[in-house]
């Protein structure tokens, strides 16, 4: 399978707890491991509160992880001590945010927002160069250069999201964490942003961690998908496989909830309920490779059941 490719990010047993030791301790991310290969899009899905954002922020080092290892480009992120190393790291990973209204400073002009990274990392020779870079970036995301002297509140949600993308691109990152970049947008605008991200990926050889709660869009943009629930990843596999032949009951339930723009289908839809009590028994579970590249979080006695499902779905030969 794709193991021959270079891993750009490795996450090993990441735990991110909040309020450790207090009564309101939250285990937002609880023992999560996954790899992301260079040039691919890894989709992370799960319902609200499942820990997707927290995982993304821990990776980009906005949080100090409780435990676990994050290795980016062969380098352990927690071991970046000097300012210079951190600075270099910041240029390589960037983030796109969910809420297009909260992610742009309302008191700054678009050109200064987009140029923020350019200024911090000193990427422009002079003012003219800075302006040129900003205008090019705006054009890349489909905006005009006369937008650069306006303020964020003058733009629609989709336009703002594109400004956020331009800001992230300014430092020429290798890896972008997109935290629900389309959830707050209209369906028609979602496609614009998804297409833009795909186009940029090809042109600039980007790797994405794409976070969302809606599996149907994630399937489009992702090569592989991880399904998260209660701080744990339950299933990881190739996008089409996870979407068309989910093995974990939770994934099945999540897929059955996606609305489909087809009245005939909707009239006959059956929503698959999910019984989460099983997850809470005290059995030891770990990620087991059920089919090639397709992992399920399972206890020893569940492996046989999942293998059977994989055989039934034609993923492996019985």
């Amino acid at each position: 399978m794709p193991d021959a490719r270079k891993k750009i990010l490795e996450v090993h047993h990441l735990k991110q707890y909040f309020n450790v030791g207090k009564r309101d301790e939250v285990r937002a991310v609880d023992d999560v491991s996954f790899d992301i290969y260079e040039g691919e899009t890894f989709g992370l899905v799960g319902e609200s509160g499942s820990g997707k954002t927290t995982a993304g922020r821990a990776i980009i080092h906005l949080y100090e992880p409780t435990s676990g290892e994050i290795i980016f480009n062969g380098q352990d992120v927690s071991k970046l001590h000097t300012k210079k190393q951190m600075h270099a790291f910041r240029r390589q990973i960037q983030m796109i945010f969910q809420d297009p209204y909260a992610s742009l400073n309302p008191r700054m002009k678009v050109k200064d927002i987009v140029a923020e990274g350019i200024d911090i990392h000193g990427l422009a020779k002079d003012d003219a160069d800075r302006t040129k870079q900003v205008e090019d970036l705006l054009e890349t995301v489909g905006l005009n250069k006369d937008h650069s002297s306006r303020y964020p509140h003058e733009f629609s949600g989709g336009q703002r999201q594109r400004i956020g993308i331009a800001r992230a691109l300014a430092v020429e990152p290798k890896f972008i964490i997109a935290d629900e970049p389309i959830s707050a947008l209209d369906v028609s605008i979602q496609a614009q942003v998804v297409n833009l991200l795909k186009e940029l990926q090809v042109k600039q050889n980007l790797t994405y961690l794409f976070i969302a709660h809606d599996l149907s869009m994630v399937k489009y943009i992702s090569d592989r998908i991880g399904v998260m629930h209660y701080g744990k990843i339950l299933e990881i596999g190739p996008a089409d496989e996870v979407y068309n032949h989910p093995l974990h009951a939770y994934t099945k339930s999540l897929i059955s909830a996606v609305p489909v723009p087809d009245p005939e289908f909707e009239r006959n839809r059956i929503q698959v309920p999910y019984d989460e009590s099983r997850e809470k028994d005290d059995k030891k579970r770990r990620m087991v490779e059920i089919a090639p590249g397709h992992f399920i979080r399972a206890s020893e006695d569940e492996v046989a059941m999942y293998t059977q499902r994989a055989v039934d779905a034609g993923l492996i030969n019985g």
Partner: peptide, 12 residues
């Protein structure tokens, strides 16, 4: 612009 069950992957 919406992905449906049987639209193939590719650009929306």
């Amino acid at each position: 612009s919406m992905p449906t069950l049987d639209t193939a992957s590719g650009s929306l």
